[in-house]
């Protein structure tokens, strides 16, 4: 527990290597740290996929159980811990979405505004607010592609069909969008 406690006392933001070691030990403290620092992002991803608060609450619980119990399968050489957790959240939410409704995806579009409205509630995670504005730097076209691929689990082929654009355009829009994000965020 020592390393993490020291770290927390210093008031620094997350450090993946320490968290990794602490998670290996499965201590309650590691969970609390994990939850306090990562649950808003994981929950945000889940909400964006499922667009329903109740099933998102269930999904968040299932995702934490998965992260906790499958931690040994995390490979530090393959991705950052954060990415690994985000992918678990995203994939779980997408699986849930697909098993819940076999109805076509067009239903989802009706809920397009869900995220925006939800985002203005007081529950909004404060760290996210400043960043949210930065997303406005993306063109609508670019946002749509990223949302389809990332939050709705479309393959690039599906996204191309959905938007009626060539496959190459999907790729180039994603690349330009992420380049923009890199410029503002990283």
């Amino acid at each position: 527990m020592g390393a993490l406690t020291r770290y927390l006392e210093q008031g620094k933001k997350y450090d993946e290597e320490l968290l990794y070691i602490e998670l290996k030990s499965k201590s309650k403290k590691a969970f609390e740290y994990l939850y306090d620092n990562y649950s808003p992002a994981l929950y945000g991803v889940i909400l964006n996929v499922l667009r329903d608060e109740e099933s998102s609450n269930d999904a968040l619980q299932e995702v934490f159980v998965k992260i906790w119990n499958n931690f040994d399968s995390y490979d530090p050489l393959k991705s950052r811990l954060y990415t690994w957790m985000l992918n678990i959240a995203r994939n779980h939410a997408i699986d849930k979405l697909r098993s819940k409704t076999t109805a076509d995806r067009k239903d989802l579009k009706k809920d397009k505004d869900f995220v925006q409205t939800h985002g203005t509630q007081p529950e909004q995670f404060t760290d996210g607010i400043g960043l949210r504005k930065l997303i406005d730097h993306l063109d609508e076209d670019q946002k749509v592609v990223i949302d389809l691929l990332y939050f709705q689990g479309f393959t690039q082929v599906e996204a191309a069909e959905e938007l009626n654009i060539p496959l190459g355009t999907v790729k180039s829009r994603v690349r330009i969008a992420i380049h923009k994000l890199r410029k503002y965020f990283v």
């Binding site: 649950s39 808003p40 992002a41 929950y43 945000g44 991803v45 909400l47 964006n48 609450n57 968040l60 950052r80 954060y82 990415t83 985000l86 995220v115 939800h118 985002g119 529950e123 909004q124 995670f125 760290d127 996210g128 960043l131 949210r132 930065l134 997303i135 990223i146 990332y150 992420i178 994000l181 890199r182 965020f185 990283v186």
Partner: peptide, 14 residues
């Protein structure tokens, strides 16, 4: 890192 930032920007406190 960019995608992490993107996810962070959609963060919602449960």
């Amino acid at each position: 890192d960019a995608m992490i930032a993107y996810a962070d920007s959609h963060a919602v406190k449960p």
